[in-house]
Simulated scan of single mutants.
Amino acid sequence: MGLTIAYIIIGIYSTSLLLIFFYSLAQLNLLVNYLGNKKINEVAPKYNLLDAKEIPFVTIQLPIYNEEYVVERLLENISKMEYPKSKLEIQVLDDSTDKLTVEETAGRIKALQETGLDIQHIRRENRTGYKAGALKEGLKIAKGDFIAIFDADFLPEYDWLKKTVIYFKDEEIGVVQTRWGHINRDYSTLTKIQAFALDAHFTLEQVGRNAKGHFINFNGTAGIWRKECILDAGNWEGDTLTEDLDLSYRAQLKNWKFKYLEDVETPAELPVVISAARSQQFRWNKG
């Protein structure tokens, strides 16, 4: 009996070591791919934004829901985006249920409209499909050939569009995804741990996979889609919590290419309390 238990324990231990070994080989492969990726973007075809005829029309979508504390900062940041106004549209997809927040958002949008910015406040009668439903609703009337998406806590740099939309010169590219940054990385030990874990994903894993043409996913924000790609892949669907992953894989199964830009960082805030971080991780894993 004792000998049998010993064999079982050794078997479990050996299997675990073997799995760890295979995982390590996979990570090593990603590292090799990552190191060999440096020059790919340098030789990629790009739009010449100095030529007015090559500047594509872009729609920025901002899906928000009761973002009382960050919506003003978001709108101020996006309004500073350096891109020809005649080629830029901004959709604030506001599913908020807080009347005061809605009114304040509407007031800020009106003030921006008076500056000549093409920005629209889009409200729905119901929240069917949640974020995916809001994105799908906005897409129906979007003027742009390319759709940039930012969650409420993301703050792209003023030249973000100029660094990303240029890669759609390659007509096979359906998505350009940028790397998440962290405004409050050094706030606490918790934020430092989260930043470390996310950085590993957004550098080694995403770049390593993308370098060899393996599937990667749009991360729900801080990226830009070709409108044709969204429609060809079946559009946004709200039947899963991870609508970004769902549409990403459907698009790549349709042979659309994804481009990941490690050098373009889009900063955002990390959860600063353990309950918020746990809730975020639970949602991602449940999806």
Rank of each mutant, 00 (worst) to 15 (best):
E72G: 03
L93Q: 06
L100C: 06
G116R: 05
P84L: 10
F218V: 00
V264P: 01
L204M: 12
R209A: 04
F202Q: 13
R73L: 14
G174C: 06
Y23R: 14
E262F: 05
I10H: 03
E171A: 04
I64M: 08
L161C: 09
E137W: 12
E205I: 11
L241H: 13
G138W: 13
E157T: 14
A44V: 10
T203S: 09
A222C: 15
L270G: 07
W256K: 02
F218K: 01
A44W: 12
I193L: 15
D51M: 00
E42T: 14
D118G: 12
L19N: 10
N184P: 13
I183Q: 13
Q61G: 07
D94N: 12
S96D: 12
K227Y: 07
I193E: 15
L270E: 10
A44L: 15
H182W: 15
D246E: 02
E68Y: 09
N219C: 11
G138C: 12
I90W: 01
N77K: 09
T242A: 05
E157M: 14
I141A: 15
G213K: 02
Q113L: 05
K212H: 10
N184T: 15
Y167V: 11
E103S: 05
K143V: 10
E67N: 09
Y13N: 08
N48Y: 06
H121F: 02
D232Y: 11
P45C: 01
